[in-house]
Amino acid sequence: MLAADNLALMRGGREVVTGLSAALKPGTITAIVGPNGAGKSSLLLGLAGLLAPASGSVTLDGEILARLHPRVRAQSIGYLPQAPDIAWDVAVEALVALGRLPWRDRGTAAIEAALVALDLEPLRHRPVSQLSGGERARVLLARVLAGEPRWILADEPLAALDLAHQLSLIAHLKACARPENGAAQGVVVVLHDLGLAMNHADRVLVMKDGHLIADGPPNIALAPQVIAQGWGVRARWLGDPGAQALIVGEEPEQADGG
C-alpha cells in the first residue's frame, strides 16, 4: 500500500498539493489526471519520495517514506521521469542495467527479464541515439523494471508516442500490474489523455489546483460533470466501455451526459 495522508507539497515556495489523501493498492493501474498546473507531477514526485512533504505524510506499507534510507526506498519504488534526455550515448543493455543501481549488484537475471518483457533483446547492443521514440520509451521503462520495484511511478510515459506505441506500452504496464506469474506491482501514471485514463486505468485521481476533485473508477471519476469542473469544458463520452472517446464541444447543457 502506497498512501498519501493529508499530504501537502511545496515547490518553488508555492504549495502545489494541498491536503491530499489517497491510498493506492498494488495490482492496479492508477491514473493521475488534471489540467495543466494541477499538481499531478508534484504528487507523483511526492509519492516517489523525491519531494519531501511540507505537511502530512506518504507511507509505504505503513512506513513513513521520508524516513526510509534512499536506497531502500529506491528498491521499492521505481520512478520514470517525463521524457528524460539521456546524457550519454550508451547501449540499450547498459542503460537498462542502470536500474540495478539501488541494489548494487549485477542483477543479470533481472536485466534479462526486463529486456525480454519489453521485447528489447534484438536491440540490446544498439546505442540509444539510434532508437525510435517508441523503442526509447520501452528502454526507459525497462530500466525501471530492471530494478524490480514493487511500485512503478511514471510521469506521462505515453505523451510522445503514436497510437500503436501507446497501446503497446500500456499493455506492458498492465502486465506489471497483473502479471501471469509473480507478484503484482502497483502502477501509477500521470496521463494527459483522458481517453487513455478512461479505457485503461483501474482508478483515476482527478486533480485541480492541488486538490483531489474526484477519485474512483474511471467512469465515475471522469464523468462529464467532473470534466466540466476540472477543465471548464463541456464533454461527453461516446463508444463502448473499454473503447470510449471523449467528445469536447460547446453543446447546450441538456445534451451533456449521453
Binding site: 514526485l45 516517489a48 523525491l50 534510507h69 534512499p70 536506497r71 531502500v72 526506498r73 529506491a74 528498491q75 519504488i77 521505481g78 520512478y79 520514470l80 521521469p81 528524460p84 534526455d85 539521456i86 546524457a87 550519454w88 550508451v90 542503460l95 542502470l98 536500474g99 543501481l101 539501488p102 548494487r104 526507459l140 530500466r143 530494478g147
Partner: peptide
C-alpha cells in the same frame, strides 16, 4: 563513479535510484 552513472537520466531519476 556509479552515482555519476545514475545522473545519465537526470537528477530526479538519479535520486529515484537512491543517489543522495
Amino acid at each position: 563513479a556509479r552515482s555519476l552513472d545514475a545522473l545519465t537520466l537526470g537528477e530526479e531519476a538519479a535520486r529515484s535510484m537512491g543517489i543522495e
